[in-house]
């Protein structure tokens, strides 16, 4: 059944037949990855390469393992009891599933945005600076500038410039999510993992977040788990279809949606499954 799926033979280009255009060299490489909780295997032998500077959508039915995979990239599953991994995930060729991996630096490079906005219980300004202070990225004299720059990047500056010391929980859900994005951007990540980042937001906020992603590539590589096929189609350059813990198909988004190769992919994107 897996015979027609993209098998990896060590050459990045072959996976997607040369479609990783510049600057699309692989930023993240996954080799023979298996993930599980105790006896349960959630991801089975995945091989893939994430092109740098693109938006990559991970789609697939509930329970297909895409969120587990996403959360393994910044090792957020580590604390869950019974969690294990086999194989390799590397960023710039640097193994990140190793015991010696510097988790703090990994998480600075690979940020994350969650399904529900999760601003910290501190002022708006302190939220933006939370990561900057944790990693001591900038002297205090630059903090105001960093706050402004990142809030402007996400289009929130005008709305909050007069209440930087207020609680973030008075903002709307969409604004809170943008604030969380600003907080992630402030530590200058290379990759951002997005776990259904707009599923809790209203349509206008969804549009704002989606436009932002398009604006922020190719500076940042986005890996987005989404249940909205329309969204995957709108925002992503590449799409990877997960099914039952396996990577069934991956390729340019337009190809996946117009000319899917695997029957499971066809079923899923035509709305007959999932």
């Amino acid at each position: 059944m897996l015979q027609d799926s993209p098998s990896f033979d060590g050459d990045v280009k072959k996976l997607d037949e040369g479609s990783f255009d510049e600057p699309g060299s692989a930023i993240l490489s996954v080799r023979h990855l298996e993930i599980g909780f105790n006896a349960k295997k959630v991801i089975r032998d995945i091989n893939l390469d994430m092109p740098r500077g693109h938006v990559v959508a991970l789609i697939g039915p509930t329970g297909s393992g895409k969120t587990t995979f996403l959360r393994s990239i910044n090792r957020l599953n580590d604390k869950i009891s019974g969690f294990w991994t086999k194989g390799s995930i590397s960023i710039h060729g640097e193994e990140l599933l190793s015991k010696d991996t510097d988790l703090l630096e990994l998480r600075r490079k690979v940020g994350m945005l969650f399904q529900r906005p999760n601003p910290f219980p501190m002022s708006i300004k302190e939220n933006v600076l939370a990561g900057v202070k944790a990693h001591r990225l900038a002297p205090k004299s630059q903090h105001d500038e960093i706050v402004r720059e990142n809030l402007e990047k996400v289009g929130l500056w005008k709305a909050v410039q007069d209440r930087l010391n207020d609680s973030p929980f008075r903002l709307s859900g969409g604004q809170q999510q943008l604030l969380c994005l600003a907080r992630s951007l402030a530590v200058q990540p290379e990759v951002l993992l997005l776990d259904e980042p707009t599923s809790a937001l209203d349509p206008i906020s969804v549009e704002a977040v989606e436009n932002l992603l398009r604006k922020l590539v190719p500076e940042i590589t986005f890996i987005v788990v989404t249940h909205s096929l329309a969204q995957a189609r709108r925002i992503s350059d590449h799409t990877m279809f997960f099914y039952d813990g396996k990577l069934m198909e991956s390729g340019k988004t337009e190809n996946i949606f117009t000319d899917p190769q695997m029957p499971e992919t066809q079923y899923y994107i035509s709305g007959r499954m999932g």
Binding site: L76, L103, L104, G111, M112, A130, G131, A134, V187
Partner: peptide, 15 residues
């Protein structure tokens, strides 16, 4: 303490 806060802080690279 909501797990949201804790995971958010961990994902940001807090010790």
């Amino acid at each position: 303490v909501p797990i949201n806060y804790i995971e958010g802080a961990e994902a940001l690279g807090f010790k």
